[in-house]
Design a protein around this nucleic acid. Structure first.
Length: 473
RNA sequence: GGCGACGUAGCCAAGUGGUAAGGCCGAGCUCUGCAAAAGCUUUAUUCGCCGGUUCGAUUCCGGCCGUCGCCUCCA
């Protein structure tokens, strides 16, 4: 078994260089990770949730490699805009207005829902969850710093960041500023450049916001990009190792984060930018809150799926590839997931053999994960291992225990099989009892008829030598 | 218009310059009154198309076709 050792090479695909790089932390033995969290004005959908699985994998792998990991996930609980860049309504405020609840209630509610979701997906909580509204002074301070460095200008509706003053603006995204949005109106009133963005927005004069704060520039609220940087500075420092998020954040949000952070500190902001690709529907359409075609984890649960089976599905594809979601794919993932666990349940702890082979699996599993988190490859190896007749149960279980600590599929938890979780209605049990009697009397016709009835109710009867069981179909 | 990604069996999906992991589904067999479950076996001469480089390409290069994402709040 691998001992904790930070000499194992971990390679990660860094968006900055668009290539795989060997991971080297800023401080030996320690890693600081920031994960862009959700805007809490609605439930997270399963596409959102996918992008929190790979940082979880990364964190656990780093910990197994012996690193001390400090990880932050934030909640954007204020200040998001619904439409045109730097225009439109605040999403949290809008949801509040629509439901009659306060903005604070809304954000609290959905933040808690998010925590429940990731818990169901075996995603470990970060060292801290941070809330944007709890870092208002730090955000104001950051704007002041940028102002003192003459990186900002004021318009009628806020304090803006002047991207033309940051020489390498857009480098992360390889943005071609002149090509941005050609032929489309993109600038808000008073903005000097297309890519400039709001640091601080003034509260509208004709309207009372629920969330607003005093600032040197007047009453208002922070722009979206500001919060992540302010929270990173406060919780992790001026330069961090890894920043994760979805690919959609590359051109705007993360480009802006880099611009404001590096202009403020003069230091490199983030060493490794990791971006997860989208989950798309069968038609390869993205799933989005704005698109109104989103599925929540709860929907999956309601349809009879296990949250862990969804995690299994996400691990079946690489985090940098599109994951084509369909219920067919989820069903096959769930079937495979429980089948794998049944195989593991049947392993014999007392049987020991093939130590050399096991060591080989160990190395290949670690290599797969250390190669930019190749979970699909690791899963394939897990299957190979479990079915390998040359390796003993003892060796298999040892490896499974170790790697499930990273994959977090609860492979050794045998309490969540559908037949153990789903209750069989008394009516169905009675039908099964009657069927068993007919069967004992060799009345096959009636026996089969009753089985069809049971099947129509979503259950199936399994006959054994002198007993039977009823399980969900 | 700019930037970028992808196209591997019915489905999901790894992968490598030397002739295609894994899973689901399907098929066959064993078992069973019949089933289910389980076990065993099996399932791409081929990696969108056309060229080029090479002893050899799915893997490298070029072109084409197709699909998708971002550039506006979104993971």
């Amino acid at each position: 078994m691998n001992q904790a050792n930070t000499t194992q090479t971990l390679t990660l695909f860094n968006t900055l260089s668009r290539s795989k790089e060997s991971f080297v932390p800023i401080t030996p033995g320690e890693v600081r990770i920031y994960t862009c969290g959700p805007t809490v004005y609605n439930y997270a959908h399963i596409g959102n949730l996918r992008s929190y699985v790979f940082p979880d994998l990364l964190k656990k792998l780093l910990q197994r490699l012996g690193y001390e990991v400090r990880h932050i996930i934030n909640f954007t609980d204020v200040g998001h805009l619904t439409s045109d860049q730097d225009a439109g309504d605040d999403k949290v405020e809008k949801a509040a207005a629509e439901t009659g609840r306060s903005a604070w209630e809304i954000s609290k509610f959905y933040a808690e829902a998010f925590k429940r979701d990731i818990e169901l997906l075996n995603i470990a909580f970060p060292t801290r969850f941070t809330y944007a509204t709890e870092y208002i002074p730090q955000q104001i301070d950051l704007v002041s710093q940028l102002e003192s460095k003459e990186m900002t200008y004021n318009t009628a509706d806020g304090v803006y960041y002047d991207t033309s003053r940051f020489e390498t603006y857009g480098k992360l995204a390889k943005l071609d500023l002149d090509g941005l949005n050609e032929g489309q109106r993109v600038s808000a009133e008073g903005k000097r450049h297309k890519s400039d963005f709001a640091l601080w927005k003034f509260s509208p004069a004709d309207q009372q916001r629920q969330m607003e704060w005093e600032s040197p520039w007047g009453k208002g609220f922070p722009g979206w990009h500001l919060e992540c940087t302010a929270m990173i500075f406060a919780e992790l420092g001026q330069s961090i190792d890894i920043h994760t998020g979805g690919t959609d954040h590359i051109p705007v949000h993360h480009s802006n984060e880099i611009a404001q952070a590096e202009a403020a500190t003069g230091e490199k902001y983030v060493n490794y930018w990791l971006h997860g690709e989208f989950l798309v529907l069968d038609s390869e359409r993205r799933m989005g809150k704005s698109e109104g075609n989103f599925l929540t984890l709860q929907t999956l649960l309601d349809e009879g799926f296990s949250a862990r089976a969804y995690r299994y599905l996400t691990l079946m594809s690489h985090y940098r590839s599109f994951l084509t979601f369909s219920f067919e794919a989820l069903k096959s993932a769930q079937t495979a997931y429980f089948k794998l666990k049944r195989l593991i349940q049947g392993l014999n702890q007392g049987e020991s053999q093939g130590a050399d082979l096991a060591a080989d699996y160990d190395r290949r599993l670690l290599d797969a994960l250390c190669d930019d988190l190749n979970a699909p490859k690791a899963l394939g190896l897990i299957w190979e291992l479990v079915q390998d007749k040359a390796v003993g149960g003892k060796e298999k279980l040892e490896l499974l225990r170790h790697y499930d600590g990273i994959l977090s599929l609860s492979l050794m938890d045998f309490t969540d099989f559908p037949e153990l979780v789903i209750e069989v209605p008394a009516e169905v049990l009675e039908l099964a009892r009657q069927r068993w009697e007919h069967r004992l009397n060799r009345n096959w016709a009636e026996s089969d008829r009753l089985r069809d009835e049971i099947s129509a109710r979503g259950f199936v009867v399994r006959d054994a030598k002198d007993n039977y069981e009823v399980v969900p179909e």
